[in-house]
């Protein structure tokens, strides 16, 4: 069954950080927390490539496996979310995550001291949709409104894609066919394995 996925096309990403501020804007993410960030490899040299990185919402999410209090769950659409009421801020998930997605505020943000925070695929969390509690702890819920993550929707060069995995693949495949090359869907096999 199809599931939600992110894909960053390194041939297109220009490290403009539009995705980063779109995320900050949509969820009023506080100073010091970066649910999404852009990394550049081989900076300043030929072969320089940039990638936008956040929680990839993995199929077999390592964070879920290591969490000592089992605060994670996965929606029917494959979105990996967590419950801040259960989270104890231990940091195991940070060590397990291949993408460095989990963030920890140093003081009270998003529901208390040290609770882990991460990308929700713009789908809120385990509170009533569009409730104040959901907003305060997890940010806005675009998915419930029929909208996709704002980072991808606002991407300057449409490098970052988010949505139904099959659709993401189709768009990316068409693009690669048109241009005749692609540097691979970075992180895909890591995040989604063969299960897709």
């Amino acid at each position: 069954m199809a599931r939600m996925k992110f894909l960053c096309d390194a041939e297109r990403c220009i490290h403009c950080s539009g995705c980063v501020t779109a995320c900050k804007n949509e969820h009023e993410v506080p100073w010091g927390i970066n649910r999404r960030r852009v990394v550049t490899l081989n900076d300043g040299k030929p072969g320089q490539r940039s990638l936008s990185v956040a929680c990839m919402h993995c199929s077999d999410a390592p964070c879920m496996a290591v969490c000592p209090v089992d605060c994670f769950y996965q929606t029917n659409d494959g979105i990996v979310l967590h419950n801040k009421d259960l989270c104890i801020g231990c940091g195991y998930c940070f060590y397990a995550c291949p993408f460095g997605a989990p963030q920890y505020p140093s003081t009270g943000n998003f529901g208390g001291r040290g609770k882990m925070d991460k990308c929700t695929f713009c789908s809120g969390g385990p509170e009533e949709d569009h409730s104040k509690a959901e907003l305060e702890k997890y940010g806005r819920n675009r998915i419930a409104e029929g909208k996709l993550p704002l980072c991808a929707e606002m991407c300057a060069t449409k490098a970052l894609l988010a949505g139904d995995g099959d659709m993401v693949s189709t768009i990316y495949r068409e693009r690669v066919m048109a241009r005749g090359f692609g540097s691979g869907a970075a992180g895909w096999s890591h995040a989604y394995g063969k299960k897709g």
């Binding site: 403009c16 949509e26 606002m154 449409k158």
Partner: peptide, 25 residues
């Protein structure tokens, strides 16, 4: 209260850079 992508614009097709995505500040 919010900023949505302007997909209809023929110039930016909904896209923004870091500055444009942050103008609600």
């Amino acid at each position: 209260i919010g900023q949505e992508p302007a997909f209809d614009s023929p110039l930016n097709l909904g896209s923004h850079c870091a500055k444009g995505a942050a103008v609600r500040e």
